[in-house]
């Protein structure tokens, strides 16, 4: 379990994160939501990194040990972070970028094993046809998949340390993806949590993706925690309104076992009086 207590980050005189507590449990998908600038990515980076930018307070524990006492290599095998976007200093091929994922265990693997693992994850994310393409020439969505393959390879353990918990932290994984890829991506991530017991932590913007795939939700506003807990208890109209300043309808999903959320404009009667929101 990754547990953050009283996480605070100040950057350039501004409080980005203000006393937030949160947990990421193995085998569960934790989704953090909030407006732009609410501190979502900062929270993610604070949970992931030994030394973050800015003035920092609070503590992060990973499986009972403080983040700062971890050997960086050990931590690198334990948790992977999918960044919002990565720009390469110089072009590398797709296969080369993915291979970077196994650098933490480079000496433990033979060249053949490395190649085989890279191929495995290229297949898993349907990147095999792109393996020799130059990473900067790919579309944003394709780049995301390459980076995810790299992250999964980073956590790949070949059954050697089954007992260790693994954590995958995703910073807006669906941002550049088309609708189908969004579902595929989130589905894959939840699969990793369910089947491999991975702890998944994701920043998402889509309420319905979160409602469908998350186990636990964290709502942030202005760097402060609005609410956190299991989906059923925190996915309420009041919390959504407080977090996003929009009204919404929460219905039972007609086809899936989860709520269906329709957001409605909030307090903007002058813009379109004819279809003013109905407060229910």
């Amino acid at each position: 379990m990754i547990r953050g207590t009283n996480l605070t980050v100040r950057l350039g005189g501004r409080v980005i994160l203000d006393g937030v507590d949160c947990t990421v449990r193995p085998g569960r998908v934790t989704v953090v939501m909030g407006k732009n600038g609410a501190g979502k990515s900062t929270l993610l980076n604070r949970l992931a990194s030994r030394n973050s930018e800015g003035a920092v307070a609070g503590a992060v524990e990973v499986d009972g040990r403080c983040l700062s006492v971890y050997d960086p290599k050990e931590l690198g095998r334990k948790r992977a972070v999918l960044a919002q976007s990565v720009h390469l200093g110089f072009p590398l091929s797709v296969a080369e970028v993915v291979e970077i994922g196994c650098y933490g265990r480079y000496d433990a693997l033979t060249t053949r094993q490395r190649r085989e693992r890279v191929r495995h994850y290229l297949d898993l994310l349907e990147l095999t046809d792109l393996r020799d393409r130059s990473y900067p020439t790919l579309s944003g969505g394709e780049q995301k998949r390459v980076l995810l393959a790299k992250c999964l390879l980073q956590l790949d353990h070949d059954g050697t340390d089954q007992k260790t918990n693994h954590y995958l932290l995703l910073d807006e994984p669906t941002a550049a993806l088309d609708v189908e890829q969004q579902y595929r991506f989130v589905h894959l991530a939840t699969g990793l949590a369910r089947e491999r017991g991975m702890g998944v932590f994701a920043v998402l913007h889509d309420l319905n993706l979160a409602a469908r795939f998350a186990d636990d939700l964290i709502f942030l506003k202005g760097g402060k925690l609005v609410a956190a807990g299991p989906k059923a208890s925190v996915l309420t109209k009041t919390i959504i309104r407080t977090t996003f300043d929009v009204d919404c309808l929460i219905q039972a999903h007609p086809r899936a076992d989860c709520p269906l959320i329709t957001t409605l404009p909030y307090e903007q009667p002058n813009l379109a009086p004819a279809c003013a929101p109905q407060r229910t």
Binding site: S49, V81, A83, V86, G104
Partner: peptide, 9 residues
């Protein structure tokens, strides 16, 4: 990037 390198270990 440096952050990525650090996160890799």
């Amino acid at each position: 990037g440096e952050r990525e390198a650090a996160q890799l270990g």
